[in-house]
Nucleic acid binder design. Structure first.
Lengths: 212, 212
DNA sequence: GTCTATAGAACGATAGAC
DNA sequence: GTCTATCGTTCTATAGAC
């Protein structure tokens, strides 16, 4: 079963090498900036092999998005509370500017390009990004909902939705700051963001406690 | 002085038509998605004229950025306080998704693409965007600083900086939400964002009042 | 200043030998 | 499954007539 280096290695090995290559390139250059020739070069395989393993550029990025979402789900499933979630999300923004340390985290900054490029409206990778964005939102909102005690389900659901919207805006905003190269201490502002959201939560809970 | 339509009209008239054309295209398709042929078609002039008035695509976008910044400065110079600033900025995000109503506002969502496309590192338009982003930040921070009474200058400066960072993250984040097509009531969340930042301000001011 | 034609480069994708 | 050569398209930019 001995195989020569780079030729006829297991299919899965090559596929994985290509996924790693496209991640490293996408982090540097985004979707449009990543060329299939780049990916081939970074993977050590010829461009023909890339097209043998993946139908086209769109499908290659769809596969990459799915892979990154898996990583995200694993690392965020164990987050204890809102503050911890914000800490991790905003720290990921910092990782995105430093770049290579945690490519799977840095990827989500690249994903934002999909949000802006309306030219990619029919692009399957863009649609997958938006679908995953929605799934992440529901994931966060349902966790928050479960953490509000002493109010009706309706109130908890609306509050969780509001806080999830605000939290998403903040983390996306700090990703923009990282991409723009703003000189920002993300660790510090993660705490400030958590302070701000916590004060919204307690104000809302207080408000409904008075009515009861 | 009668001139035939579209031929040899005043230089300024054509230049302005081209700027309007590139704005309308950039709002739809971003930087890379806007082609010089698109701009020419939208302006009603041939592509040769576009290159006669502007050196190249980069310089065309530099001129567009400067023009939009002028509009922004005019419309935000009169903003009364932080809540009003957030209202306008986040309402602009909504305008960006609806698109054509206020192109000068919608433009800033397009500008965010420059933040993400690192491939454009040496691009003069990207550098201009980042410079203007910095100027806007200082503009906001200095206005906030002047609004905090009863604390030392150092404290006011640090607080203004923090709130400006948080406000920028929030508005950028809502621009992302608009671009991603998230179903969001921007008017409502502008108020919530203002509530959150105001609670940060009063907490900080209270903290320093106790020490004095 | 306006307009057409085209050069020149980059990219996605395919064909077909091995 | 791997690899090379190449096709077809798209886009920026220029040349040069008017």
């Amino acid at each position: 079963m001995a195989t020569r280096r780079k030729t006829h290695q297991g299919s899965e090995v090559s596929k994985q090498a290509i996924l790693e290559a496209v991640l490293s390139r996408a982090v540097e250059a985004g979707y449009e900036g990543t060329t299939m020739a780049d990916v081939a070069r970074a993977s050590g395989l010829p461009i023909g092999s890339v097209y043998w393993h993946f139908q086209n550029k769109e499908q290659l990025f769809v596969a990459l998005l799915d892979h990154c979402f898996e990583v995200w789900r694993r690392t965020h499933a164990s987050a204890a509370d809102m503050r911890e979630l914000l800490r991790r999300s905003i720290a990921d923004s910092a990782a995105a500017s430093g770049s290579l340390a945690d490519p799977a985290a840095a990827f989500w900054s690249i994903g934002l390009v999909f949000a802006f490029e309306r030219r990619l409206e029919d692009n399957l990778a863009r649609q997958r990004y938006l679908a995953i964005r929605e799934e992440m939102f529901e994931f966060i909102a349902s966790r928050l909902r479960a953490s509000y005690a002493g109010v009706t389900e309706d109130v908890a659901a609306e509050l969780a939705h509001d806080i999830a919207v605000m939290g998403r805006a903040l983390t996306d905003g700090f990703r923009v700051a990282a991409a723009a190269g703003d000189d920002t201490d993300f660790t510090r502002y993660a705490e400030l963001a958590a302070d701000a959201l916590e004060s919204l939560v307690s104000a809302r809970l207080r408000e409904h406690a008075q009515r009861a």
